[in-house]
Amino acid sequence: MLTYIVRRLAFMIPTLLVISVVAFAVIELPPGDFLTQQMAQWEELYGDRAEVMIENMRAIYGLDGSAIERYYRWITRIVFHGDFGRSFLENTRVTDIIMNRVFLTMGISLVTLFFTWIVAIPIGVYSAVKQYSFFDYLFTFFAFIGRAFPNFALALVLMYVAYTYFDWPIGGLMSRSFRGEPLSMAKIADVARHMVIPVIVIGTHGLAGLVRVLRAMILDEMNKEYVQTARSKGLSERVVIWKHVFIIACQPIVSTIGWLLPQIVSGAAIVSIVMNLPTTGEALLSALTNQDMYVAASFILVLSTLTLIGTLISDLLLAFIDPRIRYN
């Protein structure tokens, strides 16, 4: 097991390296940089001196030199000093901006992940065990709808319903009265209330997919001989399903943790723009449109690293559940 973990960790290093190159390349692709936008303004104000000033600014911001040099400087600072550079737009350390938002993104993602499982597992199992029953059709119907509904639209519809009929708080992270207040039970409860809609919205797509996969997996397994054997031993149906069938059938759930995370982060990006949540999505969008390159590149890098770690965890869990995987 230890060698397996070590091997997987070793595999992550080149992947991470490539991701960092992709993240940086994506930010480098648009013509010009943040300072070219300033240039036009300054030329009007300062005339000929603007050129020199911009050159100086370039050196200060680290925008001089070739793309490869800049990448080298950027990545070595991150690796050796944990320094992601500075934001041009807000004139603060990128690390601060990221830290503020990544935790919230991860928090929402984890809650969403658990929400997805808690809802998907019973529904998937039920649909498979009671195949073609009324509730199976109902759940299947909702699963299809859930996959077809664009999540930003779902956010808008849920916000509309929650606001009009339930007087439920919408938008933002917490009510205005709690802003800047010290942490208290009431504040946590308020934040939790604000989280309900985002979690439902972000989770729905993955949830619907998971129900379908789980149902299909269990139906496949139910016909196998070991199930018959278990039944013929006189085991109760509950034991047969949960201890024998489900353990095998839940493998796709475990193996998709890694792939579910990028989905959730993506979903969170859109939903947080609609719902005005201070997660990474919104910050990334504004960084991208303003060519605030270190912020944008760092966000992509950090989010990708987190999903890589997610994949690693899911692979380890999978190896833990199914010993056959380890020996391959």
Binding site: V18, V22, P30, S266, L284, L303
Partner: peptide
């Protein structure tokens, strides 16, 4: 396979956003 892994590990929407922001 590594290339595919990399592309799949980067959350889609941020990657799309990054590419789309490039379009002049």
């Amino acid at each position: 396979q590594r290339l595919i892994e990399v592309l799949m590990s980067i959350p889609h929407i941020p990657l799309w956003m990054a590419f789309a922001a490039i379009v002049p």
